[in-house]
Design a binder for these strands. Structure first.
Length: 553
RNA sequence: UGCCUGAUAGUAUAAGGGUAGUACGUCAGAUUUUGGUUCUGAAUGUCUUGGUUCGAAUCCAGGUCGGGCAACCA
């Protein structure tokens, strides 16, 4: 009997709502602002919102929170849709806060009529000053007590474009002494003579987040409006507008934003990394954006699994990058095709080898019992990794050394007989002998070796470029370190090896397919690849217990 | 000297008055034609002080520490 997975606090709320009959099914929404690319934090929100309706019945809308025309662009709308789809979720309706501009405008008029809103002529400095501070009450604006008629007229003039940016705002009339600063006559509308990515030049007044989000939720009958912790103080305002307007009572629930170790997650900081060219773009594989993870070779399943395993709660957190890496390795181990690729070649010559055109058969994926095999050409001259040979090996080193034996994966056991160096003492070639009766699958040699190496035939090798990525930051939580987060950028986060040597099957690599370069890590073809040149991104390394062993010394 | 909010192994998350559990990470071992995978085992935790109770991570009171709130951003 499988243990029942415990519920997170939102699932509990929903189950109670369903049980009590408050709702028969639920509606959630994912509400990104189209002013940047989605990142891992959004992935958590996406998995949460879509996951909840999948689990409990109902649906999820995709709603773009596009109330600020000066920062928002269609480019981002497209990338967001791509990312949500790629993550494996389908929204019920594609919506925009701008779809509701007319309705929102009517809501504003309703509040003016009720005496709950007024037009303020003060400039932003004055309004800010009059707002007071967290420990000090604000004071009323001198425009606070205008008549309903005057307010109506002024608001219409605002809409009609009779004022310049910043000359007037519409504010809710609540309480300038309220302990919650958001309740001190918050702005509802501001004037922006700006082109909107969807409504064009139709409007020159735009609703503020607080006057758009809750009402949009309400219009869509969102039952559970889930957002991050920084909006907790907004909930009071959210409820106030809904109550004053007497519209469908959506409810807001807050959870803690998801952070990831060794990176930053705020859009502002990510934008800086892009603009200041610390990375190549939003989908630079070192970025924590969804498009970057995709390009790097992460699978949607792995990301979903990660979000699932981390869970959600209400306390601030920094999730371990190693958990994400575990999730992607676990998925990739099952699906990646194995290939042999030598990064840093050391030539070996099998002095006693005389066969011609020999092929050895190697499994594509040992985890897959139905998996296929491929033929790999074997020959007298092979490449192995430089690091797989040490002249004076440390203890527990079971790769190749003078007089030592190793198996070449899928082929024969070889013995190192002679080390050849150039004038500078650099090792340039190994002369080895192979054990003919040790062929894989047909081994009658009775020789036991500890090490198995990957290799490629010199004559048959195909070349490619590999890009090896490391964490973008040296600090676990760069935002919380002393000084600027950029001081902690890892200068070695990208290592390019322009020529590596792969077995011929590598030539058939296709986009989207995942590969495990034996003993090297998981790789996928990068979009920069061309007919002439294959470029592979390292998605993640293999777990390397030997590297850890070496480090200990 | 305001308001809101949070605190469980290194990290993340359970336990909702009754054995503090799970995952990742760490360490040790077994298996292995990838030093991968798989398997086994171990170490490590309830912010603090009181109170209620047969019994408290859980309820109550005080304290400590962290986060958010003074954008015509979302």
């Amino acid at each position: 009997m499988a243990e029942e997975k415990s519920l997170n606090f939102l699932e509990e709320i929903i189950e109670n709502d369903l049980k009590s009959g408050r709702y028969r099914s639920i509606v959630t929404r994912f509400p990104p602002e189209p002013n940047g690319y989605l990142h891992m934090g959004h992935a958590t929100s996406i998995c949460l919102n879509f996951g909840l309706t999948k689990k409990y019945g109902g649906y999820t809308n995709l709603r773009f929170d596009d109330t600020n025309p000066t920062t928002e662009e269609t480019e981002f709308v497209q990338s967001i849709k791509d990312d949500v789809r790629w993550l494996g979720f389908e929204w019920k309706n594609e919506l925009y806060a701008s779809d509701y501009f007319e309705e929102l405008y009517l809501f504003a008029i309703k509040l003016i009529r009720k005496g709950c809103a007024y037009v303020d002529d003060s400039d932003s400095e004055t309004i800010a000053a009059e707002k007071g501070t967290p420990t000090q009450a604000g004071v009323n604006s001198k425009f606070r007590d205008r008549s309903v008629e005057e307010n109506l007229q002024l608001f219409e003039d605002m809409k009609a474009g009779k004022f310049k940016d910043g000359e007037r705002v519409l504010r809710a009339k609540i309480d300038m002494a309220h302990p919650n600063m958001l309740m001190r006559d918050p702005l509802m509308y501001r004037i922006k003579h700006a082109h909107h990515h969807r409504t064009g030049d139709k409007w020159c007044i735009y609703p503020m987040y607080d006057f758009a989000h809750g009402q949009s939720d309400s219009i869509e009958h969102i039952t559970h409006s889930i957002c991050t912790l920084e909006f907790v103080p907004h909930r009071e305002l959210y409820d106030w507008f809904i109550e004053q307007l007497d519209i469908f009572p959506s409810h807001q629930y807050e959870f803690a934003r998801r952070n990831l170790s060794y990176t930053v997650m705020s859009k502002r900081k990510l934008l800086q990394l892009v603009n200041e060219k610390h990375v190549e773009g939003w989908d630079d594989p070192r970025m924590p954006t969804i498009s970057a993870f995709r390009r790097r070779g992460y699978t949607a399943a792995a990301i979903r699994d990660f979000c699932d395993r981390v869970g959600i709660a209400k306390r601030e957190n920094v999730a371990d990058l190693s958990l994400l890496e575990f999730c992607v390795r676990e998925d990739l181990n099952k699906i990646a095709l194995r290939r042999m690729v030598v990064f840093d070649p050391l030539k070996i010559v099998l002095t006693n080898y005389t066969n011609e055109n020999e092929l050895v058969s190697v499994e594509d994926n040992p985890e897959d019992t139905n998996g296929g095999f491929r033929d790999v050409p074997f020959s007298k001259e092979l490449y192995i990794e430089q690091e797989d040979f040490i002249e004076n090996p440390p203890k527990k080193f079971f790769r190749l050394f003078p007089g030592g034996m190793v198996r070449l994966k899928g082929a024969y056991i070889i013995k190192c007989d002679e080390v050849i160096k150039d004038d500078t003492g650099k090792i340039i070639q190994l002369n080895c002998s192979y054990i003919p009766e040790s062929k894989s699958g047909n081994d009658t040699s009775n020789i036991k070796v500890k090490g198995t190496l990957h290799w490629v035939s010199v004559e048959h090798a195909v070349t490619a470029e590999v890009r090896l990525y490391d964490r973008l930051f040296k600090a676990e939580d760069p935002s919380n370190e002393e000084g600027n987060f950029k001081d902690y950028i890892n200068e070695d986060s990208l290592q390019i090896i322009s020529t590596v040597y792969g077995e011929p099957a590598l030539k058939n690599a296709v986009a989207e397919e995942r590969y495990q370069f034996l003993r090297k890590g998981y790789f996928t073809l990068d979009k920069d690849s061309s007919e002439e040149k294959m470029i592979f991104n390292r998605t993640v390394t293999l777990k390397d217990t030997w590297a850890r062993e070496v480090k200990k010394v």
